[in-house]
């Protein structure tokens, strides 16, 4: 049983990164994953608890330029209620709508949802179809250093990412989607509120002259990490959205989704839901 010996709540990023430099800090933001995980014993606190909520410049949504930037400590509620995001990336806002409950949305941060690296993380599939990257910062050589990692390469296994212990996720960035971009999100679980996704699915694509291009399909809870469904994407890329391409895409889910049986659902049901959701979102786009 580890005890917290030091609580830090810096105002400046460089202070926070220096405090993390030894890789021994437990990062706290909304605490909506950290608190239950430490309570259940799944995770232990380290001696140093670092609250990043008050760091200047780590929050906020900048959506005015060609690149959209969402600060790591931005809450899910802020995303859900952001008028510009609703215009530019409704798929992300839609996922925020379905995220846990009002109380948790008010506390949980986007950065936390990504760093928790749950295969069921609700914000991940929509960011994958938006082609997002994450910005990681650390204190090295007496200065703040940053690197940018495509979100798709961020996740390693449940709870594990490529982020080093001394690094802090500072922002999520993605290119402003083209005017002909469409995005859809779907998740399911036995009840409408406070639900961990049984599976989740997001679609992002451009549609010009009835043909799909730049198709991205992302799935959650069908593998150890959220993933891009390459076979499904291939079945759709360059195709018109018709019954044949939809059927081919649905059939291709078997190549991408490799779910397991667990306490929340069987592998059969997850595979079934992926087919249902994919067909549903494709028909949705087709209908519009």
């Amino acid at each position: 049983m580890n005890e917290i010996e030091q609580y830090l709540a810096p105002r400046r990023l460089d202070e926070a990164l220096q405090a993390m430099a030894n890789g021994d800090a437990t990062v706290l933001c909304g605490g909506t994953d950290l608190a239950p995980q430490t309570e259940s014993g799944a995770r232990q606190y380290t001696a140093k608890l670092l609250n990043i909520r008050r760091i200047d410049g780590l929050g906020g949504i900048a959506a005015e330029t060609d690149q959209v930037r969402i600060g790591a400590v931005t809450t899910i509620s802020e995303i859900r209620c952001h008028p510009a995001l609703a215009e530019i990336a409704p798929v992300l806002v839609e996922a925020a709508e379905h995220f846990a409950s009002e109380q948790i949305r008010n506390a949980a941060s986007l950065g936390g949802n990504l760093c928790n690296a749950s295969p069921a993380g609700d914000m991940i599939p929509p960011l994958l179809v938006l082609g997002a990257s994450v910005e990681l910062a650390c204190w090295r050589g007496g200065a703040v250093q940053t690197r940018l990692i495509p979100l798709e390469r961020f996740f390693v296994s449940p709870g594990k990412t490529v982020k080093l212990p001394e690094e802090l996720l500072t922002a999520v960035v993605f290119d402003r989607p083209a005017a002909d971009f469409v995005g859809k999100f779907r998740k399911s679980g036995p009840r409408p509120a406070l639900e961990i996704s049984t599976v989740s699915l997001a679609l992002g694509a451009r549609i010009a002259d009835g043909l799909l291009s730049n198709v991205r399909v992302a799935m959650g809870s069908v593998a150890p990490t959220p993933l891009r469904a390459r076979h499904v994407e291939a079945a759709l890329e360059g195709k018109p959205l018709d019954a044949a391409s939809i059927a081919a895409a649905v059939a291709a889910t078997a190549e991408d989704a490799k779910p397991i049986d667990d306490v929340r659902a069987s592998a059969w049901y997850r595979s079934h839901l992926v087919r249902v959701f994919l067909e549903e979102v494709l028909n949705d786009v087709r209908g519009n």
């Binding site: 259940s40 409408p192 509120a193």
Partner: peptide, 23 residues
């Protein structure tokens, strides 16, 4: 209650689903 070989696998409200107000 999902009980496997005598062991409860969902001892929490996250995985044991009560009916909530919206339902």
């Amino acid at each position: 209650m999902r009980i496997e070989k005598g062991m409860l696998t969902n001892p929490c409200f996250r995985d044991y689903k009560l009916i909530t107000a919206p339902e």
